[in-house]
Amino acid sequence: MNGYNFAYLDEQTKRMIRRALLKAVAIPGYQVPFGGREMPMPYGWGTGGMQLTASILGVDDVLKVIDQGADDTTNAVSIRAFFERVAGVETTTVTPAASVIQTRHRIPETPLEPGQILVFQVPIPEPLRFIEPSEQETRLMHALEEYGVMHVKLYEDIARHGHIATTYAYPVKVDGRYVMDPSPIPKFDNPKLDMSPALLLFGAGREKRLYAIPPYTHVESLDFEDHPFEIQRWDERCALCASDRSFLDEVITDDAGGRMFVCSDTDYCLTRRGELS
């Protein structure tokens, strides 16, 4: 596309983000501040993830973009079209065919492979933010590894509901040091963060923070001995592909209480339906 640099961002910005990414990888789970740029869409639509994708993307990459697991929703379609236009890269919906996957709020069901990079869009990168509004304070808490308050929050869940009621953006501890917000993925996806063969990058555009989990890094979800971490389970199977192990969305089908459960990962579901038929 004329008038724009390859992948939209100018080279000076890419270098700044690249240097920050190397530091983020070197300090797993630590939020590195970066000079976030204005992108041609509003905050909250994935500007952080897009800046990271733009900084790592090359002509040989194959890009996949998902939104809540789906390749065909507005956010995914728009971002995919954006990079087709400004970088001319090949795009795909097939998880194993992608070298870079930008995601909003899901990790694909198909296990990721070594060499793949998953870029998460993050709204609020600070896991302690809802407990402590001051950035200065939360920075100090991370510096002092002062994470007791996070366990208090989970304990309050138990006191009130009888179980840990946090179901998404469930806090994790990376390599035994930093408590990190895995972005609003369902806690169903948290186990996929642990010892992932793929590199995981996180970008928050409004908050101008980026962080990373290198491949093969220990990531544990916070819990208690008597209330161990658990993921969501369903009594139903996917109504389309009959999967009993994927993350299911409940879809209302009429105004008489009709409903069905379907996979949130469209590529996984379509692939399974292709194999079944």
């Binding site: 690249r18 190397l22 990888v25 590199l199 990373a212 290198p214 491949p215 093969y216």
Partner: peptide
């Protein structure tokens, strides 16, 4: 290549 080196 650098990112890959730093990640692994």
């Amino acid at each position: 290549q650098l990112l890959s080196a730093m990640s692994e």
